[in-house]
Each structure stands twice: as C-alpha cells, then as structure tokens.
Design a protein around this nucleic acid. Structure first.
Lengths: 192, 192
DNA sequence: GTCTATAGCACGATAGAC
DNA sequence: GTCTATCGTGCTATAGAC
C-alpha cells in the first residue's frame, strides 16, 4: 500500500475511534508508519487529510447501505435488512460520530460529506417507504421522509445507547421496537 | 457564585460544546474567570472536574425529563410531550454527545452517569408505554422496553441528523415519523 | 484560596538536508 | 519522497510565594 493510502487508512481508523479533535498528526503518522515530512508532502495538513479520509468513509457507507437497500425483497424486507445488518455497534457510526466534533461542524468542507451521506440515506429510505406504502406494506397515513428520518435516527441513536451502556442490547432493542411499529397495520408482516 | 461553582458551570458549557477531549483546563479557567492554582486547589484535575460537571448535567437532564413524563395527560400524551419538548437541537444532547468521547467511555467513573441517566430514561418511558398499552393507547403487540429504546434513540439520533445538516428539520421529521407510528392502531389518537 | 512560575511533553506545521 | 531538526504554542500538572 502506498504512503498516501496508508495515511488515509490510518486517519479513517483514528477518526472513527477518537474523532477529529482527538486525532493528532503524530498519531496518524505512527499508525501509518510514515514520517512527519512524508505526511506533509502528500497532504496540506490535518484538515486536508481528514477530508480525504471522511470522503472515503462516506462513500463506503453509501455503498454498504445501497448493497442492502437495493437488494432483493419487498420494501419492508429491505428496510428490515438495513436495520438488522451486522454492525460494529460499540464502535459507533464513523460518519455520525463526527457530527459531535466541533471542528468538523465548524468547517463546511468537512461537514459536507456527513450531510450528503445522511441526506442520501434518508432519501433512499424515503423512496423505499413510499413504495412500500403503495403496496400496502406500510400504513397509508405514514410520510416517507418522516419515517426515513425516524429509521436513520433510531440507528444513530442506538449507537449512543449502546456506547453509554457498554452493551449492544439497547441498540438491538431500539431496532426491534422500530420494526414492531413499522409492522403494525401491515397484516402481511404479522403473518410470518 | 463561588469559584468551584463557576468552574463546574464553565466545564458543563465546554463539555457540551466541545466534548471532553476538546476541552482543556486552560479553557475552563478562562471561561470561569479563575486561575490555574484556583482550579487545582478545588479539583484534583480535569477528570475530577469533568465528573462533577457531568453528574450535574445528568441530574438536570433527569429532572427535565421527569417534569414532562410525570406531568399531566395520558401515557401517549406524555410521550408526545417529551418528544416535542423544546430543545437546543443544534447543540445536541449534553449527555449523549459524551458517549462519542473516547476518554469518557474509557473511564468507568465518567461513563457511569451517562449510562445511569439514559437507562433511567428508558425505564421511565418503558413503564409509560406499558401503562398506555394496558389502556389501549398502544398496540398490544408492542414491548415497552423496546419502544422506549426506540424513543430515546430517535431523539439521540435526531441530534445527529440535525447537526449534520445544520438544520433542525431532520430532528423534527424523525419525531413526527415516530409519533405517527406510535399513533397507528390507536383509534383515539387518530381522532384529533 | 489564589497567584505566578515552571515543568515536561504534545500539538500542528515548516525548513532544509538527503 | 522521506528524513531529522526546529518552531511557537498549548497541554496537564506541580511548586511555592502570597
């Protein structure tokens, strides 16, 4: 792996683990096995490197989500697959966690990938919910964009509950609760 | 206000704004208008001061939640009042945001208040949901603890969505979506 | 109780040799 | 491209005068 590659990967790991404020250039260099001068040769500085890392993580997250949301099954089944997909729950969401970082939020360039990714996810889910509503899988009174926001928020908040308690139980409970609510008024769903 | 008081309040503000990793003793001293020696006279160090600040914020959050959850109205109405209560959405949750702080999660003493507070909140809501279910306000198939986890997660995740987008819209959408799901199978609720 | 002084180290970045 | 050296600043904390 090339040095810029290793620097980006090291930054991705550290941003996930410790956030932007908690990640130092020195730590990145050590994790990447690269020297000081090497890092500053390939990147303008910490914000520049973080931007590359965040963009890659955002792309990866979109691809992972699309893999499930664009997969087989009815809209409800795909939403369920998204909610139940395997996650490193106690590590949290590598994109969502950055929203709590003051220096990321203060920098529009760093914030943009977060906004775009979560916005894309909500719109993707909203379309799926609308489709499911037309099929009678979801109650007609539901609003696709609102339910999509609830779904994404439940996942993001699930990470918070899990990390606070040091256990994945609360995340799983939140997901099960949401699925039970979504299954209401959906006779087909209560069969299985 | 006494010096220890001012130091705790300054720490609460900074922890909310910048998290534990992003908050320095120097910044605390400046915000509190206290000197270096003064801070170390009253507190053992940054973790000790943070613990006092976090405990106070946790207590305050419990009291605020109890004010709504223990208020007037049916269980559904009290859950709705909790979800719709005024919040400083773009600032995020002063307790929830700390779960993304690696140094807080690594320190059991600092993590404990977060765990206890969110756990209390979930149990309080779970009891309310169970009560509402017995009254026919919520579907019989729902599980109190699961729905409680979904409610708290929706709020915590709503903050994430709001901060990513720089707007409160997504938080509000998530709350409306959850309320519409909770109102399903509750004929009384669809009247109004 | 509060102050200033100082410690030892890490921060984020630049300079310039190789 | 990568290295070491260095910069000026800020970190967390201690010491000791007042």
């Amino acid at each position: 792996m090339s040095t810029p590659e290793r620097l980006i990967e090291a930054t991705r790991e550290l941003l996930w683990e410790r956030g932007y404020v908690g990640t130092s250039p020195k730590a990145i260099q050590q994790q990447a096995g690269a020297g000081q001068g090497s890092m500053y040769h390939h990147f303008a500085g910490k914000p520049d490197l973080a931007l590359a890392a965040i963009r890659r993580t955002a792309e990866e997250m979109r691809a992972t989500a699309e893999g499930v949301l664009g997969g087989p099954g009815s809209p409800y089944e795909r939403v369920e697959a998204y909610l139940r997909r395997e996650r490193d729950v106690l590590r949290g969401c590598p994109i969502g966690r950055l929203t709590m970082d003051p220096d990321v939020i203060a920098n529009d360039e760093l914030r943009a990938p977060l906004d775009e990714t979560l916005d894309w996810l909500r719109e993707r889910l909203a379309g799926l919910v609308e489709e499911g509503r037309e099929r009678g899988e979801f109650a007609p009174s539901l609003d696709g964009e609102e339910i999509a926001a609830t779904i994404v928020a439940t996942v993001q908040g699930g990470y918070v509950l899990a990390r606070a308690s040091g256990s994945t139980a609360a995340f799983d409970a939140g997901v099960r609760g949401l699925l039970s609510l979504l299954a209401l008024n959906s006779p087909a769903r209560l069969d299985g």
